[in-house]
């Protein structure tokens, strides 16, 4: 039990952050109309591409003699970039359609 309390006390700020972020995520999109479900999903898809930062960190501190880490790190940065760039571009292309009609 003490371990648990120690863990809780050590990570209190994180726990608050997580709880508040969860509620924020729910709140932020709760009024979305059905027509925007697909673009919103695509946009959220691009945002979790933030995992790219982890890939850069892991690659940036990899020992260049460690071939496995170098190869996996390179792939991680590459795939993460695909997620970010592809995600945002696809979302933009979908939303481009909406914008055209706003002008008219």
């Amino acid at each position: 039990m003490d371990n648990f309390f120690q863990f809780f006390i050590d990570n209190r700020d994180f726990i608050y952050l997580i709880i508040l972020s969860i509620f924020l995520g729910i709140e932020v999109i709760s009024n979305v109309p059905a027509i925007l479900h697909t673009p919103l999903m695509s946009g959220a898809n691009a945002i979790h591409g933030v995992v790219i930062i982890g890939a850069i960190i892991v690659m940036g501190h990899a020992d260049s003699n460690n071939t496995l880490a170098m190869i996996l790190g390179f792939i991680a940065v590459l795939l993460g970039t695909l997620n970010v760039v592809g995600g945002f571009v696809v979302t933009d292309r979908m939303l481009e359609m909406f914008k055209k009609k706003d002008k008219k």
Partner: peptide, 17 residues
Amino acid sequence: MAMLTGGILVGSAGTIL
């Protein structure tokens, strides 16, 4: 923090979506 907030945000918003 960027990964954390971005990830959790998408996790919860994605679930609701």
